[in-house]
Design a protein around this nucleic acid. Structure first.
Lengths: 203, 203
DNA sequence: GACTTACGGTACCTCCGGGTCCCGTAAGAT
DNA sequence: ATCTTACGGGACCCGGAGGTACCGTAAGTC
């Protein structure tokens, strides 16, 4: 290996359009989120991306691979709020599920849940859109526990899992995204009471 | 109308087997819950029910109608616990989601969520397996509010919606049913703190 | 016993969608 | 200018599954 023999054969000819790449991924998310994994047609995705099926198969070997890529592409840097107020930090985390992209992600998750047997697909979706916001909430809780404002005995996993559960449930079954009022109620009436609990009511 | 003219033409010939009817519905739930709505094959359902496709189409006109009927058939009388203890009542409601039939129902719901465009299907599922347990929880909360043990200002809908959300989320995305430990934690660490809150912490 | 309808099973029709191929054209590299 | 590869788009192949038709048989009614 002098410089680069086997890898990267000199890229001659017309290069691939990166804009098209992104357009295809976006179209995939939209179509899959709206129609479901099985019902999503490659032709619809191609049409919505303003291209043909060939351009898709030039990049990904199968429908599954395409959807996995689209799910991974949804990853957005989830901020870990640190406002100095526990309530505001929680609100920041919960509000993450209100954004349009989050709603698209959840709708996609709805669908990916259907592909139960497809482990690859499910894991990719979970890692891409499931974990990050939960990790953020977990981090916030850990920080406030360290600060002594939250009981160290609180079941962090259970509490942190509450928010995505509600968001997912609303989108998947009730077909309505999380709204501001619900987010506030979730924080004030559920999360904060659960966290403020000292050492337990039965000593 | 003397006795019954138009309706019920004298049922001659071999009658339909009601046992088979139930077997088909059960098989439908199992196969659809395992494979998903789209991936569920009528032939698999028939085979699992120990019959042929013809026997199915003799009863329901389409795959969708069959699944709707199967969802409706899942309705089971959800008991409204009244043990004298708020905690026990809540536990009773939450435990409902641990039963095998509840897990099957939730798995089915996972799938029905995918059929977003099919309003008929979604509504049937919601009415059959979504509403009843939530109504039970709502009733329990209402009773304890009436008894004065729970703040009348508590957002009953939000709280009652928490449990199915968690159950659904776990089954659909995490692929694990609700277990006893989680149920207890849900009641002790989430529901009870949210309910015991008096009039609010900021007077 | 005659009749009617359900039964299990299978072969079949038909449509739909994933995936492939090929066209004429466009956009870069040498 | 030439070469190579990507592009949009259409034609096509093919497997799979919903739905139908028909068999011989079983289980009821009159």
């Amino acid at each position: 290996m002098t410089t680069e023999d086997s890898e990267t054969p000199p890229p001659t000819g017309r290069p691939r359009d990166p804009v098209l790449e992104q357009a295809i991924l976006n179209a995939t998310v939209e179509v899959v989120a709206r129609s479901g994994f099985a019902a999503a047609k490659l032709e619809d995705i191609a049409k919505r991306a303003g291209t043909g099926k060939a351009a898709i198969y030039r990049r990904w070997p199968s429908k599954t691979a395409l959807v996995v890529a689209a799910a991974e592409n949804l990853q957005s840097p989830v901020a870990i709020p640190d406002t100095g107020s526990l309530r505001e930090d929680l609100l920041g985390c919960v509000r993450h599920y209100i954004t349009p992209s989050a709603r698209a992600a959840l709708a996609l998750a709805t669908v990916l849940a259907e592909a139960s047997r497809n482990t690859e697909l499910r894991d990719a979706a979970q890692a891409a859109i499931g974990q990050p916001p939960v990790e953020a909430l977990r981090a916030v809780l850990a920080r406030w526990i360290a600060r002594g404002a939250v009981d160290p005995a609180t079941p962090v996993d259970l509490i942190a899992g509450l928010v995505p559960a509600v968001a997912f449930h609303r989108v998947a079954l009730l077909h309505q995204g999380l709204d501001e009022a619900t987010a506030v109620a979730l924080v004030d009436d559920v999360l904060l009471p659960a966290l403020h609990a000292p050492a337990g009511d039965t000593p």
